[in-house]
């Protein structure tokens, strides 16, 4: 699911790019989005598509609110010191995971897809929902790209990314930008989770894999470069399936992690990144 991976990874990349914060709890925001999706759809009356639309709006907002709160309460007080924030987000990871386990339970629960549609092509059938996921993810990514490059908010974000003190001197409220970026990154992960949850089930430990994969994507694409992240997400999302056809999945994971470590050591700017 390269499209969903791209969404999650762009969220992580955005947070790192603007804030220089490695958010280890990113996978947990993904998980929170899926869990929130389950809560909303199971409480929402009416046809599945109505619940799904509500989820798509509510879950990212809820997760973004949690993230903004975490930013205000924890990260801001640490002055966004890179090492301290990593430790803090590890703490956050444990707290969120445990909270999900206690409140939601250890079971994996399914969320109904908003519609059942199979596209019957002559040689194979294809789930219409999966195509919808790809289209929706593409739309969201396009929106993110437009916000970052064309709007005032994006301009402010990029200014903060390039030179924080100067941005501050020009009257930009850097604290609000950071809270917004952190919330937006988490919200993107939540959207990705809501989209994927009718295919996978919601589970309190589901944050691990997307976290690892997004890390891989963000590093290979070049830390903080959105375009590199996108290319890498497509590449890895597609190749992940191909590799695990030929090798055992564990071996594929071993090779992938070693590869990422070596990329960081020898090409810290990423395979597609520009000069460091």
């Amino acid at each position: 699911m390269a499209a969903v991976l791209a969404l999650t990874a762009v969220g992580l990349s955005l947070v790192f790019g603007v804030m220089r914060v490695v958010n280890v709890a990113h996978g947990e925001f993904f998980m929170l989005g899926a869990v929130a999706a389950w809560f909303v759809t199971s409480w929402m009356p009416g046809p599945p598509w109505l619940g799904f639309v509500a989820t798509l709006l509510l879950a990212p907002l809820a997760v973004a609110a949690v993230a903004a709160l975490a930013d205000r309460l924890v990260l801001k007080r640490l002055n966004y010191d890179p090492e301290a924030t990593i430790v803090a987000t590890i703490g956050l990871l444990y707290i969120l995971q445990q909270a999900a386990l206690s409140l939601y339970g250890p079971d994996a629960r399914p969320v109904p897809a908003p519609f059942e549609l199979r596209l019957q092509l002559p040689w194979f059938g294809y789930s219409g929902y999966k195509l919808f996921v790809v289209a929706a993810a593409g739309l969201v990514l396009l929106a993110v790209w437009l916000i970052m490059t064309r709007s005032r908010i994006g301009l402010v974000m990029r200014a903060t990314q390039i030179d924080r003190p100067t941005a501050q001197a020009f009257g930009i409220d850097v604290d609000r930008v950071y809270a917004g970026v952190f919330a937006m990154g988490a919200g993107l992960a939540a959207i990705a989770a809501v989209l994927i949850v009718p295919i996978q089930q919601a589970h309190y430990l589901m944050g691990g894999d997307p976290l690892l994969l997004s890390f891989i994507v963000v590093i290979i694409g070049g830390l903080g470069s959105l375009r590199g992240t996108l290319v890498a997400a497509l590449l890895i999302g597609l190749s992940d399936g191909v590799i695990s056809v030929f090798y055992a999945p564990t071996l594929a994971k071993i090779l992938a992690t070693l590869f990422v470590a070596l990329v960081l050591v020898f090409r810290p700017q990423g395979l597609f990144g520009a000069k460091a």
Binding site: R77, A88, G91, L92, I95, L96, Q97, Q98, A99, L101
Partner: peptide, 19 residues
Amino acid sequence: DASNLVVGVALLVLVLFAP
């Protein structure tokens, strides 16, 4: 049985208040 919660909270409290 929420031992992970203890670990998580301890990490946060430490980096915030007693680095």
